[in-house]
Design a protein around this nucleic acid. Sequence first.
DNA 1: CGGTTATAGATACCAAGTATCAATAAGGCA
DNA 2: TGCCTTATTGATACTTGGTATCTATAACCG
Lengths: 132, 132
Amino acid sequence: MPGVESVLQRLNHEGYRLTGPRRYVLEEVLQRTSPFTSAELWDSIQQSAPTIGRATVFRTLELLTRLGVVQRIHRDAEAGRCHAYLACEDHHHHHLICNSCGKVTDFHEDRALEALVHEVERRTAFHVEGHR
Amino acid sequence: MPGVESVLQRLNHEGYRLTGPRRYVLEEVLQRTSPFTSAELWDSIQQSAPTIGRATVFRTLELLTRLGVVQRIHRDAEAGRCHAYLACEDHHHHHLICNSCGKVTDFHEDRALEALVHEVERRTAFHVEGHR
DNA sequence: CGGTTATAGATACCAAGTATCAATAAGGCA
DNA sequence: TGCCTTATTGATACTTGGTATCTATAACCG
């Protein structure tokens, strides 16, 4: 997980302003080690920093997603509630998410996975750019 | 893709009533060979059978999902619009979905994938029940 | 320290999907 | 065949996740 400071530096470097709300949301996000919903994040921010607006939370979440600091994950849930967010590690890897408690474990790139990607490419007309 | 009749038989067998709207939505769904959104389905049903209500379309979609006749797939899209539905083949297999045109190709179970699942189970505390 | 301009908060909006409820129509049975 | 029960329907209101818009504010640059 990248530290708060390094992300702030990166934001600054890419021309984004380092504002209070941004810092605050970023800190909240980076503290979390398991997937969270926008509603959970918003609730806890509203309690600890009630002046920050809902739109700002979503905007920051989107910015951080674009930067790769968080990842949006999809899951089966009733109603629309299928999104969760997760603070990313620095390197490409895969998540295993427990069906019952939601706990996340990483699974790092390995031979079996590479073999699978090659197999897919060999047997279909697809070039695999990414996977989930 | 299971035929309309066989699904109807199954519905009947499981105690569901064979109603006009159900038949109609089912036919619409089974005609589609690539992923469609609820909005697309609803639009086309509304044009061809304007008396069928929106709720019924969603209810039928949910019923068919529970029965495994359609599958809900998740994809990255702006706004909430991340769901699509896809009529399922009868056997377990995997979908490759093209980033640019949305076309779907199947990838059948094979050694590389099995190896990956075993590798995951060997190297983590997880038992893999399913994957996407 | 002052001027630009990105960003903030408020608010209204939108789309996907669900809950509710009275009216209807399947299917079992006489 | 026709009636009765009850699942299902359509209409409508609501909820939730997320976005657009607009004015006020506050970063950053000179």
